[in-house]
């Protein structure tokens, strides 16, 4: 069983060893130095120009979202996950209404009775409550507020697997984290 043939990335963008190294080994510990790309290049034995050019290509292809800081939730402002069980016939209308709030920065349709899942981010809890109450009032549909009570994940980045069948490597990584 090989998923490789269906892998859109392998179809549209050949992933070189350099790409894989950039994607997997530099999700954290990006150098806080004057010339970070040159420092990365020196570590993996290529030129600064190659590192910058490749990151630009990966970003243009959408494979890299950005090179930058990942901010801890609630460090600046606060946010809450919310869910609604929207009748199928009203989903488009309610989704558009929810998307209309600038405080809503993620909104996903999911397969479940609770089919609309969105994140509201604002300066403080009062602003969040106002948005959730407003959505509930305008739609007449109950909004479940599901704030994070505790996080159990230590964010060290996400291990990308290049072979779909390398689950053994996944287990080894799980033991080391």
């Amino acid at each position: 069983m090989t998923h490789r043939n269906h892998d859109p990335i392998n179809e549209t963008l050949a992933m070189s060893e350099l790409d894989k190294q950039l994607l997997n080994e530099f999700q954290r510990d990006f150098p806080l130095t004057s010339t970070p790309y040159a420092d990365i290049a020196a570590r993996i034995g290529v030129t600064e120009q190659e590192v910058i050019a490749r990151l630009r290509q990966l970003r243009a292809a959408g494979v890299v979202g950005r090179v930058g800081a990942v901010i801890r939730p609630h460090s600046i402002g606060t946010s809450v996950l919310a869910a609604m069980a929207v009748p199928a016939a009203r989903l488009e209308q309610v989704a558009a209404l929810v998307n209309g709030y600038p405080e809503v920065n993620h909104n996903y349709e999911r397969e479940h009775r609770y089919n609309l899942w969105f994140v509201v981010t604002a300066a403080d809890q009062d602003d969040i409550d106002a948005v959730l109450n407003d959505i509930q009032r305008r739609t007449g549909i109950r909004v479940l507020a599901l704030p994070m009570l505790e996080s159990y994940h230590i964010d060290v980045g996400f291990k990308l697997h290049w072979e779909p069948d390398d689950r053994d490597i996944g287990e080894i990584n799980a033991n080391h984290q």
Binding site: P8, L23, Q27, S75
Partner: peptide, 24 residues
């Protein structure tokens, strides 16, 4: 400042942020 924000945990990490969806 970025070093300090990392040390106090406001910045979790600095690095390449892959787009999982685009990666398959």
């Amino acid at each position: 400042r970025m070093q300090r924000l990392l040390a106090v945990g406001v910045i979790r990490r600095i690095g390449v942020v892959p787009n999982h969806y685009a990666l398959g």
